[in-house]
């Protein structure tokens, strides 16, 4: 099964709508609730990152019997130092993002904790691609 969603940079009122949709889909597919939580927390963190930092983005989700693969592609400023961005506590978030309860430098580390595979690629001035996978069968 394949699903696609768009993300609007800066629009916090819509942040999380794709994660919410995916949660409903996974519930209908009778996926283990613990797996659902890991998937939607990881996607929600990534979605918030796009809203917080990028201008626009797209989410591509593929679900099969073995795993759930998610790719987020954004157009934005990119990440100059991915290693630094993966460190807990490092953040470049704006005060507006912090007012929403985010921007503590915990997003990418939490995505890593909740996924089985995570790849982040970025080009400064162009954008960032985040690929993640969660296995349904251990």
């Amino acid at each position: 099964m394949h699903f696609e969603f768009n993300i609007e940079g800066g629009n916090f009122s819509k942040a999380g709508t794709a994660s919410s949709q995916l949660k409903k889909i996974l519930k209908q597919l009778n996926v283990d609730p613990k797996v659902i939580k890991r998937v939607v927390v990881a996607l929600y963190e990534a979605e918030v990152n796009v809203v917080a930092h990028a201008y626009t983005g797209q989410i591509f989700i593929d679900i099969d019997t073995n795993k759930i693969e998610i790719k987020l592609v954004d157009e934005g400023p990119g990440i100059p130092n991915i290693e630094l961005a993966m460190q807990q506590g490092y953040s470049t978030a704006s005060p507006a993002v912090r007012e929403m309860g985010f921007g503590a430098g915990m997003g990418l580390p939490n995505i890593k904790n909740n996924t089985d595979e995570l790849h982040v690629a970025s080009e400064v001035g162009k954008g960032t691609t985040v690929k993640m996978a969660i296995f349904l069968i251990s």
Partner: peptide, 25 residues
């Protein structure tokens, strides 16, 4: 909310002073 998202326990009650849409999300 970044801290809340790291909690693995289910059926949890949250006490917060942050009242916006992202608290619910």
């Amino acid at each position: 909310m970044s801290d809340v998202l790291t909690i693995e326990k289910d059926n949890l009650m949250l006490i917060t002073g942050l009242a916006n849409l992202q608290t619910i999300r």
